[in-house]
Structures are given as C-alpha cells and as structure tokens.
Design a protein around this nucleic acid. Structure first.
Length: 305
DNA sequence: CTAGGGGTAAAT
DNA sequence: ATTTACCCCTAG
C-alpha cells in the first residue's frame, strides 16, 4: 500500500533548494525547522527532503547512487539476455565495485554524436536543463557558458565532469541548430523563423547531417555556419521573397557574428575543445573501470577497416 | 539524525 | 517502460 503520490510543487522544490543554499545540503532537519521553509515543507519529512534531493540531483548529472542500484537491480532481475554486442566497444560489465558506464561513444568521426557517459536519458534532461537555464536567465544578449553553468550548478550540484559535458552539449546543441551561438553567448534558436500561418505541420529544422570532424579550430566555424545556412536555405525554399530576405538578413548577421566569434575563439583557443575533452573524459572513465582488475585484456578499438 | 541501499507503487 | 515519490532499513 504505497502512499498516494504527492508530486512536489515548485514551491517545495524552491524551498528545498533555498534551504540547501542556506544551510547546505544535508541539513534536512535544520531546513525543515527553519520557519522560512517550514510553511511549504510542513508535510515533508527530513527523509523526504533527502530522497527528493537524491532523486533530483541524481538525474541532473546522470550519475548517482541510484543509477547503479537500478542497473544492478535490472541486471539481476530482468533482462536475462546477455548477448554480445557485435559493435561498439562496450566492455564495461564488471560490477564489482565501480561501475562507470561506457556507452556507445563516437570517438573521432561518427554519425551519432552522443556525449560520453550519459547516454539516452541523461542527455535530454541535461539539454532541457540548459534550455531552461537560458530561458530563465533571459539575458538580452544571450547567456554565456559560465552563466549557464552557474545557473545549473545552482539548481543542483554539478559533478566534476559537468563542465566538460556542458561544453560538449552546448556545442552539440549549437551545431544541431537548437541553440544559436553569437559572440560567446547562447540563445534559444528561433523556433520557426516567423509565425507562418497556413502551415500547421512543418518539419522544419532538419538536422540533416552534421559531421563532427571539428578537429581544427578553424574548421569548426565553417561547419557551424554551414549547417546554419543549410537549415535556413531549406526553410527559404517555401518562403516568400520578403520572408526570405528577412531570413537572409538574419543569416548574414549571424554569420558575421559567428565570424567575429571565431576570431575571438581563435585567439583564445577555446573552441573545438569540447569533443576532445569529452573523449578524454570517456577515456578516463573507461580507465577507471578497468583499473585494478581486468588488466589482461586490452580494448582495441580500431573500426578502420 | 544522516547517508545510502533497496523496494513498491503511482504517474507519465 | 521509465520516472517519481514515498517508505523501510541499516550503518555510521
């Protein structure tokens, strides 16, 4: 007989967060006793706070005590299938003590550009978080990486690799056209250029193919503007001249901004660092998994035929 | 009391 | 089927 679920309200979550900010994570009793928050959190117990915090934070960063538990649980209970994966280099099964997920990762040149570590579930959450961070910050000229990171860190505590993940994600989202990056700042990509009436359905924003061969810092910008322009072009096909003109103007402005950004980036060399770092993070994770044990078999990843 | 492991049931 | 919330238990 489980208790009838009571979803946490925003007030409660906010109070929780505020309480954690004030008293620090873990002082549930203190938070609860605080008259500022006790109003909203009256019905929650310290354990509830703890659990909620656990649930919350565990999903934001993708790692958590719970995830392992879940995986272990599923491993022993359900899914008796244990077929070998003919592809991918998933060699992480040792469930002795440390479990680091090594998911199908695309290292250097691949179609599916997923970020290492968090695979399907965590990703959407994270990018949603990013979007919300940007939306919430509502900075007139966009939000830069640091602001977004701060905002997200504010909600939840971020893991050490969060910065890298954020960078990678930001880059990915930018390349995908979900975000537009102008002068080191990110904004939400225009959701459908203009309000086009008469066109209910619309498979706009095709994410055709974006190669991530951004090995060079100069190549990166080309890639970026190319995909942007490509998307705009395909949209323009079904536009009137006026609309196309507007779109073109916007595209030009963006391209200029992108060029400026590229110049800056080239100076500081901060671009094209994302996937390299992601790859590094992955490598570290894999190493950690294989450390101590399993020193005989080495993973050889040579997909090149 | 807190952290965390483990579980169940209800929402989605 | 996954996520979410709540519960129980045990070791510090």
């Amino acid at each position: 007989m489980g208790a009838p679920k009571q979803k946490w309200t925003s007030e409660e979550e906010a109070a929780l967060k505020a309480g954690i900010k004030k008293h620090g994570a873990g002082k549930w009793r203190t938070i609860l006793k605080d008259p500022e928050f006790s109003g909203v959190l009256a019905l929650r117990s310290n354990v509830d706070l703890k659990d909620k915090w656990r649930n919350m934070c565990v999903m934001a960063n993708g790692w958590g005590s719970r995830e392992k538990a879940r995986l272990a649980l599923k491993r022993s209970q359900q899914i008796p299938k244990h077929d070998r994966n003919p592809m991918a280099l998933s060699t992480v099964v040792q469930s002795d003590e440390e479990i680091v997920d090594a998911k199908p990762l695309a290292i250097s040149g691949s179609d599916t550009l997923q970020i290492a570590g968090l695979k399907k579930s965590a990703s959407s959450r994270l990018d949603n978080l990013i979007l919300e961070a940007i939306t919430n910050l509502k900075e007139p000229s966009g939000s830069n990486k640091t602001s977004i990171a701060l905002y997200i860190e504010d909600q939840c505590w971020a893991p050490p690799n969060f910065k890298r993940l954020l960078s990678a994600k930001l880059k990915f989202l930018t390349a995908s056209g979900k975000l537009i990056k102008v002068k080191r700042k990110y904004r939400i990509a225009p959701r459908s250029a203009f309000s086009d009436r008469r066109r209910s359905s619309g498979v706009l924003l095709l994410e055709g193919r974006q190669r991530d061969s951004s090995r060079d810092e100069k190549d990166d910008i080309k890639l970026f503007s190319k995909s942007q322009i490509d998307a705009d072009l395909s949209k323009m096909r079904s536009m009137t001249a006026e609309e196309a003109a507007i779109a073109a103007a916007r595209a030009v402005a963006e391209a200029e901004a992108a060029i400026a950004e590229a110049e800056e980036a080239a100076r500081e060399a901060e671009a094209a660092e994302a996937d390299a770092e992601a790859a590094q993070a992955f490598a570290e994770a894999a190493m950690m998994t294989l450390k101590g044990r399993n020193a005989s078999k080495m993973v050889r990843l040579s997909p090149s035929t």
